[in-house]
Amino acid sequence: MVAKRIIPCLDVADGRVVKGVNFVGLRDAGDPVELACRYSAAGADELVFLDIAASHQGRATLVDLVRRTAEAVTIPFTVGGGIASVDGITELLRAGADKVSLNSSAVRDPDLVARGAERFGCQCIVVAIDARRRDGHGWDVFVKGGRENTGLDAVAWARQVVALGAGEILLTSMDGDGTQAGYDLALTRAVADAVDVPVIASGGAGCIDHIAAALDPGAGGGHAAAALLASLLHDGVLTVAQIKTDLLARGLPIRPLQESS
């Protein structure tokens, strides 16, 4: 069985790492390439960079960051934020990103998912979904950093983008993000069970129990293929080694830390 992945997420703006707590109060947390190397050496299975500024003038900086990361790290990484065209996808993949993540642009232009998948294969196209619990039942899809409710149902939207060619879903619970109160397991499970592509759980991890629950394939688990982590790692609360050792002991399929090579 494919190993469950532990994925540090680096929010970047203008070539620097920042961190969001409920999407406000950003703070500088270091050099992205240096952090990427640190996480790669520490046993992270993959990395995600999200360009939260996503400004036009910041694009060249992001492409340069992707290039320098590809030179330095030997694990896969995904880049997201402000990618609105096949040209934008091409630019980042050619700079060395393994996958791109589409969010608002997929809502605006769902066919972009299809065009990207047609051109590069669905394995390169991640669709990021920011979901917030709806009054009553289900979850709404939000865009623009959580400011705009699209009215789309998160589970239906996940099904739609996978039908269009998305190879992976990066699912963030807006309710959980930054709270460290645990992933939204019902949301994660609902989406993971609705699609036949991997789902990365994001938003709310506060301890190893939360991560284990998101990855748990059992009835009460999140059924996710991977867990995205930010503050927990960036703030030094937990290390990748601690998380992996613990998850292995719980019997989850995890790539071991020490490789004989």
């Binding site: 190993a3 992945r5 299975d45 190879g167 992976e168 699609v195 036949d196 394939p217 991977a226």
Partner: peptide, 13 residues
């Protein structure tokens, strides 16, 4: 295509 085995087959093995 088998239930519980997402495609793409993606990750470490």
């Amino acid at each position: 295509r088998r239930p519980g085995h997402p495609i793409p087959h993606m990750g470490w093995e």
